[in-house]
Design a protein around this nucleic acid. Sequence first.
DNA 1: GGACACATGTAATACGTTACATGATTTT
DNA 2: AAAATCATGTAACGTATTACATGTGTCC
Lengths: 182, 182
Amino acid sequence: MSRRDTLTELEGAVLGELQARGPCTPYTVRREFLDSPSPYWSGSAGAIYPLVRRLERLGLVQSLPSAAGRRRSRLYSLTEKGRNALQAWLKPPLPEIAVGVPSDPLRTRLSFLSALPRAGRVRFVAEARKRMKEHLRPIQRDLARRRRSGDTYGLLVARGALAALRARLAWLADVARAAEFR
Amino acid sequence: MSRRDTLTELEGAVLGELQARGPCTPYTVRREFLDSPSPYWSGSAGAIYPLVRRLERLGLVQSLPSAAGRRRSRLYSLTEKGRNALQAWLKPPLPEIAVGVPSDPLRTRLSFLSALPRAGRVRFVAEARKRMKEHLRPIQRDLARRRRSGDTYGLLVARGALAALRARLAWLADVARAAEFR
DNA sequence: GGACACATGTAATACGTTACATGATTTT
DNA sequence: AAAATCATGTAACGTATTACATGTGTCC
């Protein structure tokens, strides 16, 4: 958001975290991404630190040197302008990408599955189902954790993640039943 | 894929299209993305044309000057190396991002919804449901088209897209029922 | 034959990843 | 006190987006 009029996903998420947690270090924000059950949120240092400084340069966040410890660090928090930017990001009109068909790398690959020989196609679907099922347990743990924490939106989001994963699994079962794989 | 050992989503998709359609121009490939019901596939010219030439430089595709018309253009097709790269991209092990919790910009935004006043939160959910429902019809048309076309994988993919959208809608209905919005 | 969309690009720019560097804190 | 990990960065690199430029076919 240098001369753009809207925030990127990562910028929005960072502002959102800062708003939700109050003043904290970039690393605290980064941890949240690193701990996310979704591989989408890589939380790479090379993204977060420059981004936070960019937000400060734009006046969306402000920082104070951290008192605790001898380690150099700063605590960041939203400015009034930052709160407005976050709210504008959340407010309608929602971007197409948020309401349209979600992207799905697995679906993309399936589009081109005819490029594999039959045995390869069967293996593809089997592996996909197996690997996706392995993700169910961690998600459910995350869900339970959020249930205990009492964070309404965190809980709803976790339920959404689980629902998305289950829908994909049900679809894959359907795929496996298709003529190609029987 | 210059010194990477795997293809990006876009590279894989372009190779896949070239494989599926046989020799064609970059624009033909681009059209496929432009016509996709998913906003994820922007199909911007600045991405496709340089990418195709990169693939050629790497020896994954080859090209011949297009005979038809006076318009300068080239027809691209996969090389043996390109077919191998495509198959390697499709083959297990699948990347985490393909089997993990799919990313979802709407879910991301919902995480931070507490930053809006109550009226704004209600509006957010209402707008999201309305806009998502508007996408059902085009998806169903796309589904019908693919049903007629007889392309097995295209049909399965379209069914997956519809299933994903419906699951999200069901989840949003759930969200709307939550305490916050009654 | 002027207007308009089609088709093929290019340049500037911005952003995220990977890999590395370095000091602080904790563990063994 | 050595090793490991935490925390804060930075630099190089690759890739996608936006916006523009330009020629070509088509339609009125």
